[in-house]
C-alpha cells in the first residue's frame, strides 16, 4: 500500500504511522459528559467502505494527513494535510 502524500508524493506505507479514525473530536473541557467522553475514546463507526483516518508521515515530511481510504479494497481516494489532528484527535 502506498499513500499519496501531498508533500512527498506516493510513499510506502512503512513510512507512516497510523492513528485511526479521524472522526472523533475531543469534547470541550471539564464540562464534557461521560457519554460524550465514552463516544470520543471508545466508540467507533468502523465502516466497511470509505473511511477518513489520520496518518503521520513519520519518515517523510512529518505532517499529519487526513486520508480517505476504502477499508475493503485499500484504495486511497485522497490524502490532505490536516491541522485539526493535534487539537482534535492526537492524544
Amino acid at each position: 500500500m502506498r499513500i499519496p502524500c501531498p508533500h512527498c508524493g506516493a510513499r510506502d506505507v512503512q513510512e507512516f504511522t497510523y492513528l485511526g479514525d479521524a472522526k472523533p473530536r475531543r469534547p470541550e473541557g471539564l464540562d464534557a459528559t461521560e457519554a460524550a467522553m465514552l463516544e470520543y475514546v471508545y466508540v467507533r463507526d468502523n465502516p466497511r467502505g470509505p473511511n477518513d483516518e489520520l496518518w503521520y508521515h513519520a519518515a517523510g515530511c512529518r505532517a499529519w494527513l487526513m486520508v480517505r481510504r476504502h477499508t475493503l479494497t485499500h484504495v486511497i481516494e485522497s490524502a490532505v494535510p490536516t491541522k485539526s489532528a493535534k487539537a482534535g484527535v492526537a492524544a
Binding site: M1, D12, V13, Q14, Y18, G20, D21, N46, R48, N51, E53, R69, T71, L72, T73, H74
Partner: peptide, 13 residues
C-alpha cells in the same frame, strides 16, 4: 497490519 481493514489479505511490510 495496524490499520482498519476488512480485506482478508494484508500488505508486505
Amino acid at each position: 497490519d495496524g490499520y482498519n481493514s476488512y480485506a482478508q489479505r494484508g500488505n508486505l511490510p
